[in-house]
Amino acid sequence: MAEKYGLFIDYQWCTGCHSCEMACKVEHGWKAGEANGVILFEDGPRMMANGKYEYNNLPVFTSQCDLCADRTAMGKLPTCVHHCQAACMKYGPVSELAKLAEATPRSWVYVPEQ
């Protein structure tokens, strides 16, 4: 079985710039109002128990995310990873991403359906 690929998000650095969303929409030709492959969930500024404000931004991938199959087939990165302004996303084999996540506080790995 071919190795399964996914996405790793080091979300403590996600600034909420929406580049992943727009990159996805443009790449797949989805128009305003149409569903996208990734949606940015934003929370903050939220006061935490320690008295400091926090932002927690997280790109969440929908069933329309195909990990940019056309792009990766020709040796490019998924467009969200390529354009992420905070450079906090990575694309790779899930097994490797899981190891990376283990070493990275407040990160997560997205594993697609297919």
């Binding site: 727009m22 929409k25 443009v26 992420c84 450079a87």
Partner: peptide, 21 residues
């Protein structure tokens, strides 16, 4: 189509949503 140039030391491939669209 447009894409950020990953070989550019300036933005290193990154783009904001205005350029992407």
């Amino acid at each position: 189509k447009i894409e950020g140039d990953p070989l550019s030391p300036y933005n290193q491939g990154r783009l904001c949503m205005r350029c992407l669209d």
